[in-house]
Computed example of a mutant assay.
Amino acid sequence: MIKLIATDMDGTLLDENGVLPIEFTEILDRLAAKNIKLVVASGRPYYTLQANFGPIGENLSYICENGALVVENGKIIYESSIDRNLVHEVIECAKEIVGNAVILCAANCAYVEKNCSEGHLNEIKKYYKIINPVDDLKNVDDDIVKITICNLENSLENLNNVFKPKFGDILNVVGSGEVWIDISNTGANKGVALRKLMNTENITKEETMVFGDYYNDIEMLAEAEYSFVMENAPEDMKQYGKYIAASNIEHGVLKAIIEYAL
């Protein structure tokens, strides 16, 4: 019997326009009636996820910032801050590459530099609803749980050729979308965060269902017996799921929930 369902947002639960399916509220009520816990697991920050779900999200649990922040019943129960010296090293490295915009993610806001281009800002604002512009990111005095790098042209190339070789042994470096690189503490990922929630609720792998579509979902998929990779995911991602769900355009998450959990 399934007791917990965790789902990624972009490319997974959300449709091609970044919108929740119309039937989501009904499905959420049906899950609640069966005492099945729904966990939203995203690279997005908590304050953005709150805005995304509004009042219907009050009873959800949230794995935010790709696992660096976990919120249960409106309270932060886990937070993994990056050492400030490492934050500065990543900033310096990122600034050496043309086309990079760096976002420092704290629990309550995202920091960007004031000279950030309009193109980058338009992309950043899709996911970060509270932005604090600063003159120099190195002067930010806040606990940083994730460093995000947006490059509209060469994100994956930079990921594999620069950031993973340089920081992969000391930080968790992952592609979280076509133009995004996310960097957090080693051990701060969606899988570790999900395991914390499962242990808190005494829920087993056999009682867990997970949906994902991108490389930052791999560890989370490994925590569930019912692991679904979306049909719209990159082909090499599909090896990490036991099942393939219909695409996000077809509302594959809800279809699988109805079939396997409801």
Rank of each mutant, 00 (worst) to 15 (best):
59 N>D: 14
109 C>M: 11
85 N>L: 14
92 E>Y: 15
45 P>F: 06
77 I>S: 03
101 A>H: 10
95 K>L: 07
89 E>F: 11
58 E>Y: 11
61 S>H: 14
72 E>L: 13
73 N>T: 10
80 S>K: 10
55 P>E: 15
93 C>H: 13
81 S>E: 14
84 R>W: 10
108 N>G: 06
66 N>G: 01
90 V>G: 02
67 G>R: 05
92 E>P: 04
86 L>S: 05
101 A>C: 09
66 N>R: 02
48 T>A: 14
93 C>N: 08
96 E>N: 09
91 I>W: 04
92 E>G: 13
50 Q>D: 06
76 I>T: 12
98 V>G: 10
70 V>L: 06
60 L>S: 04
69 L>R: 06
88 H>Y: 09
91 I>V: 07
96 E>A: 14
93 C>P: 00
62 Y>Q: 07
79 E>D: 12
90 V>T: 03
101 A>Y: 09
102 V>L: 03
52 N>P: 02
80 S>T: 04
59 N>F: 12
49 L>W: 06
73 N>C: 05
100 N>Q: 06
70 V>R: 02
64 C>A: 08
85 N>Y: 13
83 D>K: 06
77 I>K: 02
68 A>C: 04
68 A>S: 08
50 Q>W: 10
98 V>L: 13
59 N>G: 09
86 L>H: 11
81 S>I: 13
93 C>M: 12
78 Y>V: 07
46 Y>L: 00
100 N>Y: 10
104 L>P: 00
101 A>T: 12
67 G>Y: 08
56 I>A: 07
94 A>N: 03
106 A>T: 01
61 S>T: 15
65 E>K: 07
78 Y>G: 04
67 G>L: 08
99 G>N: 08
48 T>H: 15
84 R>V: 09
77 I>M: 07
67 G>V: 06
105 C>D: 01
101 A>I: 05
89 E>R: 13
85 N>W: 11
65 E>A: 10
79 E>G: 08
68 A>G: 03
77 I>W: 11
87 V>P: 01
87 V>G: 01
91 I>Y: 05
64 C>F: 05
78 Y>F: 12
106 A>P: 00
92 E>K: 15
92 E>W: 15
104 L>K: 03
63 I>N: 03
74 G>I: 08
52 N>F: 12
62 Y>F: 15
65 E>I: 06
107 A>E: 14
56 I>G: 01
46 Y>A: 00
100 N>F: 10
77 I>N: 02
90 V>C: 00
104 L>G: 00
70 V>G: 02
91 I>R: 04
92 E>N: 14
70 V>A: 05
58 E>M: 13
99 G>E: 06
47 Y>D: 02
57 G>V: 05
66 N>D: 02
82 I>K: 05
76 I>N: 04
